[in-house]
Write a protein that binds this DNA or RNA. Structure first.
Lengths: 222, 222
DNA sequence: CCAAAAGTGTTAGGAGTACACCCATGG
DNA sequence: CCATGGGTGTACTCCTAACACTTTTGG
């Protein structure tokens, strides 16, 4: 019993303080002209994760990003062409100017804010919903949030990332205290001047040693 | 690009206050004679979950159990026969006398305590490790623990389930207070008499309404 | 001096942890 | 009356949440 196997990758980033996802416009049927999550077939000799990284590179030109397997979707009729199951991954890329078109087989790729998504092909809306859920959950007990920021960032920028993903406002003082308690930030001597107000100190993420925060008994509220 | 796709199911239960997993002895090469996680090929017209439920039924004769997709494993060489990826599921079955042999294609099936596992075929040890990790995590913030108990149970039995999975002792009073706070137990008027000591009150699980406890802000310690 | 974002501290409520004794029963 | 597991309460710590003003800068 052989089945065609694809990987689909939900690529998230933050743009203009909004959570965005990379979608590609389908050039061929089915769903021609509809937007979809980028993906492709798994090759004979590559692992699932390798396939996901390859697709990611083809679409965004970037490598070395956060990538995690999400879930496998395999309803018999999810693809009208026949039996195709997909292993979905999700990736987090740093905002720093990634041009979707940098890839090779980019029919047409574009960032969409989660608040304004087009109608998606296949069961891709379901996959995307699940990815957002996972991302929100992981934000609580891991440091994935930092994967969406450049090397140096302000505390407000960090807070905006959390707010964008959780889709609600957080208290500035409580947010900062929590980060302080976690001890995963290293302040630098640099400041970001921007507009006519007090400059913000830049910080670095300094905690490769643990991705899980559970140990510290500190979580983010939902 | 077609690939053979299997589902493998890690079936957990509690026996004699120990966490156990169902394994089957392979009757054919490769790994003939080695123990492995039960599984089989996904059929053309069934969903992944349907395939998992079918396998589960064939192995244990039970249906209506907790079943959850775990992870997909797809390294090119994980099966010496060629390219096979597997979608792993994990199931929790109630202790109440399930005879592994009840199934159809049961070559030879047997419960093994997690503390005394044999050497496993393929990458099944890796899959099992991951399943245990997931189970432990879910125990903290969901009510999956109840899936391993019969309809009515004593508080001590419940605590033993948590202890078996987490592999450490818990404080009786704190454990009970937490359950009390969660409000997910309904005491019955029945008692279990067993040996020469005070009988234990039987309780029911009474919270189908939510599987996630996060909302309540109460978690189990790790 | 005005506008705008950066930065900072206190209090009250509640869950987590550690810990020791009496209760009910059968033999 | 004794052995066995069932059942209960308190004190302390620490995280969480709510909440408002001062600081620094550019214009």
């Amino acid at each position: 019993m052989s089945i065609r196997v694809t990987v689909d990758i939900i690529i998230f980033t933050i743009r203009q303080q909004e959570l965005c996802v990379l979608l590609v416009k389908r050039g061929i049927p089915p769903f021609k002209g509809r937007w979809s999550i980028p993906g492709g077939f798994v090759l004979e000799r590559e692992s699932l994760e390798d396939a996901a990284r390859r697709e990611l590179r083809e679409e965004t030109g970037v490598d070395e990003v956060y990538l995690e397997q999400l879930y496998s979707f395999g309803k018999p009729k999810r693809d009208p062409r026949g039996r195709v199951i997909t292993i979905a991954y999700f990736a987090l890329v740093k905002a720093a100017g990634i041009h979707p078109e940098a890839g090779s087989d980019a029919a047409q790729a574009q960032w969409f804010p989660m608040s304004g998504l087009p109608s998606l092909a296949f069961d891709h809306q379901e996959i995307l919903d699940y990815a957002l859920l996972r991302l929100r959950n992981k934000l609580e007990y891991t440091t994935v949030g930092f994967e969406l920021l450049p090397d140096k960032f302000t505390l407000t920028e960090l807070q905006r990332v959390y707010e964008a993903i959780l889709d609600r406002k957080l208290d500035k003082r409580n947010f900062r205290r929590k980060m302080e308690l976690l001890g995963i930030l290293r302040p630098t001597q640099e400041f970001r001047k921007e507009g006519s107000h007090r400059p913000a100190r830049l910080h670095r993420f300094a905690a490769r040693q643990f991705e899980t925060l559970k140990d510290k008994g500190i979580l983010f509220p939902f």
